[in-house]
Every structure is written in C-alpha cells, then in structure tokens.
C-alpha cells in the first residue's frame, strides 16, 4: 500500500537489513520500524487480545499503539517511534499482552 518516492535529488540512503517474524526486510537508514514494515508490504503487525483481529500502524505518531511489536525480545515497542537497526529481530505480537 506504500512505496518509496523516487527522488533524483535525494541523498542516497544506506540500506539496513532487519527481520520480521524471521523474514528478511530491506529498510533504509532513518526508517522507523513501522515505516520499514509498511514499505515492505507488511500490513499487519499485531492481532488484538480480544478478538484476534489484525491491526497495522494507524497514527504513526505514537498515540494509537496499533504498531506494537516485539523487538529483540522486548515486547510492546512502538514501531512508529523506534528507528531500524541492522539485524533487528522484530516479531508480531499476537493477542498482545496488556500493558498493565
């Protein structure tokens, strides 16, 4: 549902490889986790604890918490607020734990 604009005058961005549920995702330096997933065609990053319905990033600004993922074994990370790092292991949160 998203693609990268091809911009002739944009500075070349370094490629960063991350993993989503074990699958390799090619991101760009400066991408948030959520942006990287969206650009790779990943639309669902969690399912809800109540009905198990699929959810993806909604606000991209840290208020909806729909982008929660597990990053390098830390749960409940807001994917839209954290930048990708080489080798990051990102996992979808299914029936995500409650925050408290």
């Amino acid at each position: 549902m998203f693609k990268r604009l091809s911009l002739p005058d944009a500075p070349a961005q370094k490629t960063v490889i991350v993993y989503f549920d074990g699958r390799q995702v090619t991101a760009k330096d400066g991408d948030t986790i959520a942006a990287a997933l969206l650009s790779a065609g990943v639309e669902v990053c969690r399912t809800t604890p109540v009905s198990g319905s699929p959810r993806g990033p909604y606000c991209m600004m840290g208020v909806c918490f729909e982008c929660l993922v597990e990053v390098d074994n830390i749960p409940n990370v807001q994917g839209c607020q954290v930048l990708v790092k080489e080798g990051m292991q990102i996992r979808s949160q299914n029936g995500a734990r409650r925050l408290g």
Partner: peptide
Amino acid sequence: WTLPGVMTAGSGQILLKSVGLVPSA
C-alpha cells in the same frame, strides 16, 4: 476504521515527510 489499510492523514504525511513513503495506488 480498525482494518489494516485505514490510517490517518497525519500518518500519511509523517511517512511522506520523514522517509518519502507514499501510497502505491
């Protein structure tokens, strides 16, 4: 409004400004 594929205009603008990500259709 909870379906993947439904987002906010703000989110679209954030993706545009920050990384140049735009709707593919």
